[in-house]
């Protein structure tokens, strides 16, 4: 009995020390200067632009990576093609590579002196220090989440339900829409949550390709650092709180939507 309580105390204490404590401290620090100064911080145009840019990037990245994540998972699990293992390895690459390296790689390719960037610049397209580069960087670091959640679910459900649907006269699209997609929905949902959380919180890769131009290419995470370095603690804390609140909202929205698990075959 006592050991069970001890175990719980350790688990809760660990999380409390590392997560709840700092968050509570931040909350307290944010409002220590009064509500008015917080309001002032989040009404500033630079903050509002950073918020808008962050949401815009997430709004582009999440649907794209969801679509391609499902596609990649289907190829890895259902198709018998050459290079399948390479594809599977590539899906994991962003987890192993530091975001800073990703950012630098993008600069090498798309920068003005880069292999591809020079040509693009001649045609008036700016990638680095602009939105396209930031979207590319976020896309890259978010690649694994949907596919890695969906692949084990696809493996587990097998092909029998799809074959049954086929013999009953369903077309490929009908099979995907009516059988496969509902079966992997929970996996996709969790992948979307992880992708959104990462897209909102990405710092390293985006910081390098954005050029940190306040009011132009500054996302919320970069804005937090910029305020922090400018000794505007209230501004930094307020922006951090908004970031945390966004992530929590997405997280809870997905959990509420997930159906209660049903057992059995």
């Amino acid at each position: 009995m006592t050991s069970r309580y001890a175990l719980r105390a350790i688990a809760l204490g660990y999380l409390g020390l590392l997560v709840a404590g700092p968050v509570a401290m931040m909350l307290w620090a944010t409002f220590s200067g009064g509500v008015a100064s917080v309001w002032e911080a989040i009404a500033r145009p630079a903050f509002l632009h950073a918020l808008w840019l962050t949401l815009l990037i997430a709004a582009i990245v999440v649907p794209l990576n969801t679509l391609f994540g499902i596609l990649c998972a289907l190829v890895v699990v259902r198709h018998d093609v050459r290079g399948k293992r390479l594809l599977s390895a590539l899906l994991d690459l962003p987890l192993g590579v530091s975001p800073v390296v990703v950012g630098l790689a993008l600069v090498i390719v798309y920068g003005r002196r880069g292999a591809f960037g020079g040509w693009l610049a001649e045609h008036g397209v700016r990638v680095i220090f602009a939105l396209p580069g930031m979207v590319l960087a976020t896309l890259f670091v978010c690649i694994p989440f949907v596919a890695r959640e969906v692949i084990p679910v696809l493996r587990e459900i097998g092909t029998e339900q799809e074959q049954a649907a086929r013999t009953l006269g369903a077309s490929d699209w009908q099979i995907f829409r009516l059988i496969t997609l509902p079966a992997i929905r929970a996996g996709v949902g969790f992948g979307v949550v992880l992708t959104a959380a990462r897209a909102l919180g990405e710092y390293g890769a985006v910081a390098i390709v954005s050029g940190r131009l306040t009011g132009r290419t500054e996302t919320l995470t970069i804005h937090v650092e910029e305020r922090f370095l400018a000794f505007d603690m209230t501004g930094a804390y307020a922006a951090s709180l908004v970031l945390a609140a966004l992530a929590l909202t997405i997280f809870f929205a997905m959990h509420a939507r997930r159906p209660a698990p049903r057992g059995g075959r």
């Binding site: 339900q161 074959q163 649907a165 086929r166 013999t167 009953l168 369903a170 079966a183 075959r265």
Partner: peptide
């Protein structure tokens, strides 16, 4: 398969769980 007009029953039912 869809044009063969066959009904197929699988060993493990292949029930559409959802």
């Amino acid at each position: 398969p869809r044009e063969r007009h066959v009904g197929f029953v699988f060993q493990h039912y292949a029930a559409f769980k959802h």
